[in-house]
Simulated scan of single mutants.
Amino acid sequence: MTQRAELATVLDRLAVDELVTAYAVTVDDGDWTAYPGLFTSGGRADYRSSGGIEGEAGQVAGWLAENLARFAVRQHLIVNRRVRFGVLEHDTGDTARVRADYFNPMRLTDGNGSAAPDLESGGRYDFGLLRTPDGWRIGQVVVTEKWRRTSAGR
């Protein structure tokens, strides 16, 4: 591999990492207008394993907005990121697969602004990414929840 190819790969890895981080921050901050912009046209998200829906990014943003509104505090920690670049139309690096684990602590509200029990969950994200003229975007993300608990259950 030439130095130019190695540099391009490093830059792609940084861009992919930034996209995955932007995904977490967008969900945690409830920026539902920005959420679909992280995806390709027709990009999809699948939250069925955690009791959610599967659908086009705009539809899922609406579902997330409605269902996460009851949490006063949300924080994603996405770790153990494994990035693999793929081939599309004979060009290396036009696609990427990212497998990453997540830990997601959240604080429920009781509807009156008071803190209710905490909810924590963990699992894995599988991102399918595509290089577009606007940079890397999510074609598909699948959430696989592996566990959850509330502070009341400790």
Rank of each mutant, 00 (worst) to 15 (best):
S50Q: 14
S49C: 12
W32I: 09
G55Q: 04
D46M: 11
F39G: 01
E54N: 07
Q59I: 11
S50I: 12
A45K: 02
Y35H: 06
S50K: 11
G37Q: 13
G51T: 12
I53T: 01
L38Y: 07
D46Y: 14
D31P: 12
E56I: 11
A57N: 05
A45R: 05
D29P: 06
A57T: 08
G30N: 05
D46W: 13
E56C: 04
Y47Q: 03
V27S: 00
F39H: 08
T40D: 00
G37V: 10
T40H: 07
Y47G: 02
D28T: 10
E56G: 05
G43N: 02
A45V: 02
F39I: 07
D31S: 14
T33Q: 15
E54Q: 09
D46L: 07
G30R: 06
G58Y: 10
G58Q: 12
W32R: 12
R44I: 04
D28V: 08
G43M: 03
G42V: 09
Y35E: 03
A57C: 05
L38F: 08
D28Q: 10
G52P: 03
G30L: 07
Y47P: 00
G51H: 12
D31E: 13
G58I: 09
G37K: 14
A34E: 15
F39Q: 06
G30E: 02
E54K: 10
T33G: 15
G30S: 04
Y35T: 03
